[in-house]
Nucleic acid binder design. Structure first.
Lengths: 229, 229, 229, 229
DNA sequence: ACACACGGGACCTCCCGTTTGT
DNA sequence: ACAAACGGGAGGTCCCGTGTGT
C-alpha cells in the first residue's frame, strides 16, 4: 500500500556545475581568478567563487595550486604577459622613432581605460600590490620586478629618444619612467572612485605627454604657450 | 616569476589594555581600525583584531557601528580631518605666495613618506578606495569627495598662482590638481613594493615640481636645461 | 587657516528613536512584543527589535522586565485579558440561551480570522505554548491555565445547554470544550500555511457547530441529512 | 499569572561520537536536526548543537546544506516519508473497509502520542509550520503540500466510505479531512502544556470518531444516546 | 586530473544583559 | 523612569585546506 503523501522539495541548494573538458581547468582557474581579483582584490575573492565561476571543483584548484597565495605569482605572470603582448603589438605598429613609440604606448594605456578588459577598469598588478606588498615579502619583490619590467621598457624608449631628440631639459630616463608608472597606477586608482574616470585618465595622459614635450622641446611645443623673450 | 608561499601577518601589537575608561571606546576603535586597515586593507582586517588592539569588546564595536562597512565613512572622515590639519599647519607656516604654499604642501607629503604615521607608509584613502570603490556606490562617492577635497585645495592654489605668476604655458588648475593627486596616490602604491620607496617618492615629487616650474617659468628655471635659442 | 577638505558622511547608522512620553514605555513594550511574538514566535523576536518598534531603549525594557522570558507571563496575561473582554462583549449581546451564546462565541473566533488583530492571523497563546511548553515548566502551567480558562467558559455553557436542551447523545462538557479548543488552535496553525486560511477556519467552525447540533438535536437538525427510520 | 523565570534547555544528550564513517554525515544531520527541532523549534535549535549531536562539524553541515533554512525542506520530506510509511503499514494491516482503515489511521496517531518517537510528543510539521509559515513563502507552500498529503489520504478514505456506507448526513470529504487535520495538530499543540496530554489526545480522538459515526450512522450508533422519536 | 565529503576554525553579526549616569 | 555605553559570548556563514576515491 503506497500512501500518497506527495512532496516536492522547493529551495534545493543549487549544485549546478558545468564540467570542463580535461586539461582546461588550470587555464579557467587563472582566467577567472584574475578577473575576480582584479575587481575585488585578493582577500575578498574566495577560492570557492573562483571555482564556481571557472566551472571546476576545489579538488581541481588545489591540485593545480598548493594554496590560494600560490596562485598569485601565476596570476601576475599571466597578466604581465598579456600586457607585454599588447604593448608589443602597439610598438610594432608605431615604427622607429622612440617618441612616437612612446605615444603608441600611451595609446595602449588609454585604450585599456576606454574599453577595460572584461569591463573592469583596473590593473591586477596595482590591486594586488596594494593589498599584499606589505605582508608578503616574496610577492612584494615579484610586484617590484613587474613594475620594473614596464619602467625598463619606458626608460629604454626615453634613453633612445634623448639620443635622437636632445632634450631641452636633461632628465634621468629611469626616474621619469618610474614617475610615469606611478602616475598611471594612481590614475587607475583614483579613476575607480570618479564618475568621469575616463576623462581623468585622458587628462592625466595628456599632462604626461605635455611634461615629456616640455622636457624635450620646451614651451614652444605646447598649445597655450606664451613664447618667452 | 616563481615565488614560494606562506603568509605571515605581522603588525605592531599595541599594548592591549582591556576595559578603557568610559566614552573612549569609539575613539579607540577608530584609531586602531584606521591603523590596521591602512596596513592590511579592509577585507584583511578583522573586527576581532580591531577590538583586541583597541581594548574593547565586539559588543562595543557593534554598539557604535552597525557593521564593519559602516565604520569606513567614519574612518575616512577622521583620516581626511587629520590630513587637513597637517596641511593647514604647513600652509600656515608658508606665508602668502601660492607657489611657496604649494611647495609647503609637497613638503607635507614628503614628510608622510619619510616618517610615515605609525610606521606604515600608506594612505588610508588610497587603500580603501582601491578595495571598495567598485563594489559599494555610497563609499565610492565618499572617496571621490575626499579626493576632490584635496584637489580643490591644490587647484585653488594653482589658480591663485596663475594670477600672481602668469605661467609660460596655460593650463587648467583643476586638471593639474587631479594629475598631482593621481601621481601621489600611485607613488604610494608603487612605493610599497620597492625597497627604495622613499627615493621613489622624492623623485616623483621632484618631477611634479619640475612640471609646475616648466609650466610657470619655462625650461630656464630648471637645472640641466639648455637654454633655447 | 582652514583647509577645505570637505566631507559629509553617507551611510550614517540610523539611530532615530522617537522618545515616548514618560510612563508609557511599559505599555508600548507589551503591545509591540505581543504583536511581534505573535508573528515570529519568542526566540525569533529580539529584545532590540521590540525596543526599536516600541520606541524605547533597552534600558527601559530591562527596567520593567527582569529578562526576556519574564516578559512572557505579562504578555499572555494581557492577551487573555483582551480575548476575555472580546468574548464578554459577544456573550453579553447574545442573550440568555447557552446555545446561542456559544454561537456568539464562535462568531468572535470567526471574526478574529476574518480581520485578524494587526493583520496577523495567529494566537499568541498557541505560538508561545508550542515553542516554550516543553522547556519551561512554569510557563507551561501558565499556558495550561490560560487554555483552561477558555475551556471552562465553554464547558460551562455546554453544561447549561445540557440542562436547557437535553441532548440526543450524552457527552462530557469539559471534554468537548477541550476538543473545541484543540480544534481551534489547530485551525489557526494549519491556516497559516494555506492560501485559503479563512475558508479553512470557517469550514472548521461549521463542522464544530455541526458536531454540537448532532449531539444536541440529532441528524434531523442538519441540512443534507437523510432522516432515519 | 505571575511566573518566576529562568530557562533551562534539557534535551537528551545523545552519545556524541565524532567523525562518522564517510557518507553518513548528511543522514546524521537530518536525523538529529529533526529530533532537536521537533522539541525546540527552528529558531532555538542551533547549527552548533545539531552538529555536536550528529557528530559532524559545521564544515560538513554547510557542505550539505546551503543554510540553516535550506535544511528545512529536506527535514520535512524525511518526516512525511516516515509518517507515510507508518500509516501505510497501519492501513495495510487494516483490510479493505475504508471506515476500518480510518480507525487504523487514528490508531497510528494515538500510538504516536502514547509512545512518541524519541520521547518527544510533537509533530515536526506543526512545529515548523507555526514558526516559519508567515515568514518564508516557499516553506509555507511546502507545509501546505505536506498537510494536503495527509488530508488527501483521509479525504480519499472518507469518499470511499461514503460509497460503501451511505452516511446519514451528507458532508464534503475534503472539508472533514481538513477539520480532522486541524484537530490533530491542535491536539498536539495543546497537549504540550497539559500534564494529562495523552488523555487529552485520546479524548479528542474519541470525539473525532464520534463525529464520524454520527455523520455515517446517526445517534443510535453512540453509547449514551437517547433514541429519538 | 580531477570530484566530493568533510575538518576545523575565523569571521561578522547580533543578542541578552549590566553598568553607569541623568 | 529612563538613556546609552558597553561586556561577553553564541550563532550562522563561509573559508581554506585535506583526505579519499576514481
Amino acid at each position: 500500500v503506497r500512501v500518497p503523501l506527495h512532496f516536492d522539495i522547493p529551495m534545493s541548494p543549487v549544485t549546478s556545475r558545468r564540467h570542463l573538458p580535461r586539461g582546461e581547468a588550470r587555464a579557467a582557474i587563472i582566467a577567472h581568478a584574475s578577473r575576480l581579483m582584479r575587481g575585488r582584490g585578493f582577500a575578498s575573492t574566495s577560492v570557492d567563487e573562483i571555482c564556481l565561476q571557472a566551472g571546476v571543483t576545489k579538488g581541481a584548484f588545489f591540485h593545480h595550486f598548493a594554496s590560494k597565495e600560490a596562485l598569485v605569482p601565476t596570476l601576475i605572470e599571466a597578466w604581465v604577459g598579456d600586457r607585454a603582448a599588447q604593448y608589443g603589438r602597439a610598438l610594432e605598429a608605431a615604427g622607429e622613432d622612440p617618441l612616437i613609440r612612446l605615444e603608441a604606448l600611451f595609446g595602449s594605456l588609454r585604450e585599456n581605460v576606454r574599453e577595460p578588459p572584461e569591463g573592469i577598469p583596473a590593473c591586477l598588478l596595482g590591486m594586488l600590490a596594494q593589498e599584499l606588498s606589505l605582508h608578503h615579502e616574496p610577492l612584494r619583490d615579484a610586484f617590484a620586478r613587474c613594475f620594473a619590467g614596464w619602467t625598463d621598457l619606458v626608460a629604454g624608449l626615453l634613453a633612445e629618444a634623448k639620443v635622437r631628440h636632445p632634450p631641452v631639459v636633461d632628465f634621468d630616463p629611469a626616474e621619469v619612467a618610474w614617475m610615469l608608472n606611478s602616475l598611471w597606477q594612481g590614475t587607475l586608482l583614483v579613476a575607480k572612485s570618479r564618475e568621469e574616470g575616463r576623462r581623468l585618465a585622458e587628462g592625466n595622459l595628456e599632462h604626461a605627454r605635455a611634461y615629456l614635450r616640455l622636457l624635450f622641446h620646451g614651451p614652444a611645443a605646447l598649445p597655450g604657450s606664451r613664447a618667452e623673450t
